[in-house]
Amino acid sequence: MDCVFGFVGNGFAVVAADTSAVHSILVHKSNEDKIMVLDSHKLIAASGESGDRVQFTEYIQKNVALYQFRNGIPLTTAAAANFTRGELATALRKNPYFVNILLAGYDKETGPSLYYIDYIATLHKVDKGAFGYGSYFSLSMMDRHYHSGMTVEEAIDLVDKCIMEIRSRLVVAPPNFVIKIVDKDGAREYAWRESVKDAAVASA
């Protein structure tokens, strides 16, 4: 039931993901962060099998850090996306990872970018993308409301529209979402969107 989506705005990229860790009919956690900070200016949001998702994203994060340690310069967002795609392609012929990725980053020379990488190692640079059951609704909302040059406020409003649509349309909708943003100031958590039920439990 993963729901991961993101898009590029004017000088930034924003990514949102549900925070539910589920197996079959059981919910194990409702605060699982599925968006990892790769380095100071990159985010990697992943959906798929929990073990594959955690293991693969940590593997990519450590290798990106290792490259910067060895060479003294960080990978560009495009280079990190191509490295990630290469590792998925290699694994596909041995022991594949069932993980789909949205990789967002900001580079001084090229600005913000978003890369779509699926579990069979397809790589595309996109303006907007989504994975999971929530993609049916978030993509339609982005098709309707997204435009290039969005401000942060407009982007967060669109993220909220997508979340509300997912919550109202999916039979088993994830209650909580995390939103992260990357721009010239770096990659960071922007906000959480909790269900009314979970917010009431937290305040009790």
Rank of each mutant, 00 (worst) to 15 (best):
T90Y: 13
F5S: 02
D127W: 10
N95T: 09
N71W: 04
A45F: 05
N10G: 02
T122E: 02
N31H: 13
V14S: 00
A202Y: 13
I35T: 05
R193D: 11
A45K: 02
V64Y: 04
R188M: 06
Y115N: 06
A204R: 13
F177D: 07
F12E: 00
I163G: 09
Y133Q: 12
I163C: 10
A199D: 12
E194F: 15
A187C: 07
T84M: 05
H145P: 00
P112Y: 06
Y136N: 12
I35Q: 03
A89W: 12
V126Q: 05
S24V: 09
T57W: 02
I166Q: 06
V201P: 00
A21M: 14
G134W: 13
R188V: 04
H41V: 07
A13Y: 02
V172R: 15
G105Q: 05
R70E: 12
V152L: 15
I179F: 14
P175T: 09
S203Q: 14
D107G: 06
F7S: 00
S20G: 00
E154C: 10
V8W: 00
N95H: 11
V178S: 15
P175M: 12
H147F: 13
A155V: 07
D118A: 12
V126E: 03
I117T: 12
A45R: 01
G48V: 10
M1S: 11
S195F: 10
A121V: 09
H28D: 02
V172I: 15
I179R: 08
G51R: 06
S148N: 14
M141Y: 08
L139I: 14
L88I: 14
V14N: 01
F69V: 08
I179H: 03
Y115V: 07
S168I: 05
Y106Q: 04
S138E: 11
D198R: 09
K62P: 00
G129M: 10
N176A: 04
L26M: 14
V4R: 04
P174D: 09
Y97F: 15
I163E: 14
D198L: 11
E194V: 11
G111A: 02
D2G: 01
V159E: 10
F7N: 01
L102I: 10
T151M: 11
D185Q: 11
T76Q: 03
Y136S: 13
A21V: 09
P112D: 11
P112A: 10
D33R: 10
V201H: 12
L26R: 07
C3Q: 05
Y119F: 12
K125L: 08
D118N: 14
L75H: 05
I120G: 07
C3N: 07
F98Q: 06
K108L: 10
I60K: 01
G72S: 01
Y67H: 13
Y116H: 13
T84Y: 05
C162W: 14
P74D: 02
R53L: 14
T151G: 03
T57C: 10
K197F: 14
G9L: 00
V196N: 13
N176Q: 09
V182W: 08
D52G: 07
I120S: 06
W192Y: 15
L75T: 01
A80Y: 03
K197E: 14
